[in-house]
Computed example of a mutant assay.
Amino acid sequence: MPFAVVTDSTAYLPEGFADRHAVRIVPLFVHIDDREGRDGIDIGPAELAVALKERRTVTTSRPSPAEFAAIYRELLAEGASGVLSVHLSSELSGTWESARLAAEEVGPDRVRVVDSRTTAMGLGFAALRAAAVAAEGGDGAQVEAAAVEAAGATKSFLIVETLEYLRRGGRIGAAAALLGTALAVKPILHVVDGQIVPLEKVRTTSRALSRLVDLAVEAAGDQPVELAVHHLAAPDRAAELANRLDERIPRSSGCVVSELGAVIGAHTGPGVLSVVVCPGKL
């Protein structure tokens, strides 16, 4: 077996991508009031959006080191030559730390762990690139390098209906300065060195949508790219955004659309739209 690739549920790979590319997904956990469920398995985007709109208590938690260790051992027992485990930014979650502790237990010579310093398809593209190199027979160093390079080159931009959810979860850092702005102002944020930080402010959702497209076009330049659009409870606007990106960025292989699951959605809220641009091709 080639090197095995593991990531977590916040990669939000489109349906079927994980199986097609032999990427193992470890779910994070979501808590709605007193109920706990696995991200994307027990609790999906629709249930999350309803819970947030009803102002129920929504929190998230990471997998334990023991859960990661069990998966690493399973993959190695099945014949994998090693494991690459790539996860959402350690600035946003303790998931990477759990994976690192598990790797130490199983054997750091057999399990490599990468902090992607991003999330959603920024993480997803990194895992897919690593899996492609693994499928071609790449060794551990090559598989890890593919993930690190893809994650480092990826640009992620997002607009949210409100910063309240990010503020509650402590995930906005410097973006807290934007709280209290006029309701007509839509903050555009981006992921920088593992954190979600403000980029600029735009008036009206329509202008914010156009600005997302412009930012993606600038990030793509004239090079081949992979594109993804994420949303939560905003499928029509996500489809419109994807169509506009396809028109403006001809050197992409097509824009994939994926709804954010409960973990990231809990911190961005319904109505979020995000664009992820990853240079190169799978």
Rank of each mutant, 00 (worst) to 15 (best):
G140Y: 06
T119L: 14
V114T: 08
E91R: 12
A70E: 15
I172C: 10
R171A: 11
G138W: 05
K155C: 11
L76I: 08
G94Y: 00
L76F: 03
Q142D: 03
E164S: 12
P108R: 10
S90T: 14
G79L: 05
S90A: 12
V160Q: 06
E78R: 15
E104F: 00
L166H: 10
L183C: 09
T181I: 13
G180S: 05
E161Q: 10
A132G: 14
L163G: 01
T162P: 00
L101M: 13
E164A: 14
L92V: 12
A130K: 08
E161V: 04
A132T: 13
A69I: 05
V86H: 09
G140A: 15
V160D: 03
T119I: 12
S93P: 10
S64E: 01
M121D: 07
A127N: 12
S85L: 08
P108V: 06
A126F: 00
T118H: 01
E67K: 06
S81Y: 02
V114P: 01
A126K: 04
A120D: 13
A102K: 00
E97L: 12
Q142M: 07
A130N: 05
E74Q: 13
E105A: 12
P65F: 00
M121I: 06
R110Q: 12
T95L: 03
V114I: 11
V113K: 06
A146M: 13
A151H: 02
G122F: 04
A77E: 12
E149T: 15
G124N: 01
L123M: 03
I71S: 11
E97G: 15
A177M: 09
G122Y: 02
D115K: 04
E164R: 15
A70L: 11
V160M: 06
G173F: 00
L101C: 10
T119Q: 10
L183P: 09
A175L: 02
R110G: 07
V143R: 06
S116E: 05
G170Q: 03
A126M: 03
A103R: 04
R117A: 14
G107W: 00
D109Y: 01
S89N: 02
F125K: 06
V111F: 01
R129E: 10
E67I: 09
D139R: 09
S90V: 05
A182K: 13
A150E: 07
L179I: 15
R171T: 09
A146V: 13
A141D: 14
L76R: 08
M121N: 10
L166Y: 10
R168Q: 14
T181N: 13
V148H: 03
A69P: 00
E149L: 14
E144N: 07
A177P: 01
A146W: 13
A126C: 03
S89G: 03
T181E: 08
R117W: 02
T154P: 04
E91F: 02
G169D: 13
G124I: 03
G94I: 01
G140L: 13
L75A: 09
L166E: 11
